[in-house]
């Protein structure tokens, strides 16, 4: 029982990164009704770019690496927007989908090329801190991952609900044509959405690197799948759904791993998704009524 609780707690803390990735997918979908399959790869790419500061400034603190990853994620988000969404016809989602797949492969290959395919060590903070909590112990680095991710989410929610840019973003998500008629520059809002999700993605990538200890381009496809599953379980387009689903998937994944081993773990995550598709196809926070 104690093992179960410990595994679930660790998983939920790590699940915060899945929440961030899920938010990225869901936000782009909400605004543009399109899927950005390059998102998880760009997040990992941002995390790698954060390591670049170690080459410029030897012995830079871990927080500087995280900040660099955050900024690089935003830049990569903009690059993805320009190459895969800006000029492609809005009415033809397949073309953008395919272009993001091309971008996913490109980012992965750039990483493999610059690191010669070697996994890179990633700096962490508080990795030797163990907080006792009743009979459970909480790993300090995981707690940091959780805290930073939650801060990122709070910042995003403030931006969306308390700023003019957020208002414009929500207007475009609801009715792009009406928003344009009100004088909102839709293309700019779309671009900003990519930059914002990119920033969050860079942060998520850095947090994944910090909690696992190494980064490898091999994790970008599983991360894409996990992020998409989180998006569907949470309900496509719903930010609170993505947050909750990320924590849920993170926690359950670790429990599955405890009982069935690492090779079968993801199989059960897929089954979880299918259970949701059958029972609640709209996700946790599906808008009630006929709209999907």
């Amino acid at each position: 029982m104690l093992d179960l609780l410990q595994a679930a707690a660790d998983g939920v803390l790590f699940g915060a990164t899945y929440s961030l990735i899920g938010i990225g997918f869901t936000l782009v979908f909400g605004v543009m009704q399109k899927l950005n399959l390059a998102y998880a790869a760009a997040s990992i790419g941002g995390a790698y770019a954060g390591l670049l500061i170690l080459h410029v400034l030897r012995g830079a603190p871990a927080s500087a690496v995280f900040f660099c990853a955050f900024l690089a994620g935003g830049v990569l988000g903009y690059v993805v927007y320009v190459t895969c969404f800006h000029v492609l016809p809005l009415s033809h989602p397949l073309a953008s989908l395919m272009a993001t797949v091309g971008m996913l492969l490109l980012i992965d290959e750039v990483i493999v090329h610059t690191t010669a395919g070697m996994p890179q060590n990633y700096p962490a903070l508080f990795e030797d801190v163990m907080l006792p909590l009743g009979s459970l112990t909480v790993r300090g680095d995981l707690l940091l991952v959780f805290g930073v991710s939650v801060l990122g989410m709070i910042a995003l929610l403030l931006l969306l609900y308390r700023s003019r840019l957020g208002l414009a973003t929500r207007a475009v998500a609801q009715q792009p044509v009406a928003a344009q008629l009100c004088g909102i520059r839709v293309a700019r809002v779309n671009a900003m959405t990519f930059v914002i999700t990119g920033l969050l993605g860079g942060l998520a990538g850095a947090m994944i690197g910090a909690s696992v200890g190494t980064l490898s381009p091999l994790i970008s496809t599983p991360l894409t799948t996990k992020g998409l599953i989180v998006t569907v379980i949470g309900g496509l387009g719903s930010i609170p759904g993505a947050i909750l689903a990320g924590l849920l998937v993170g926690g359950l994944e670790n429990v599955f791993q405890l009982y069935r081993g690492v090779t079968e773990r993801d199989l059960y995550v897929m089954l979880l998704l299918f259970a949701f598709l059958v029972v609640r196809p709209g996700g946790l926070f599906a808008p009630s009524g006929g709209r999907r």
Binding site: K34, L35, L228, V232, F274, P281
Partner: peptide, 28 residues
């Protein structure tokens, strides 16, 4: 049947997860 209850991009994700599920089945 279950996957087509969802539309468009949701289906992309559902089928992606299903394809991965089959791969993981053969892995085990």
């Amino acid at each position: 049947f279950p996957a087509l209850r969802v539309k468009g991009l949701m289906l992309v994700i559902a089928t992606l997860a299903f394809g991965e599920g089959i791969r993981l089945f053969f892995f085990n």
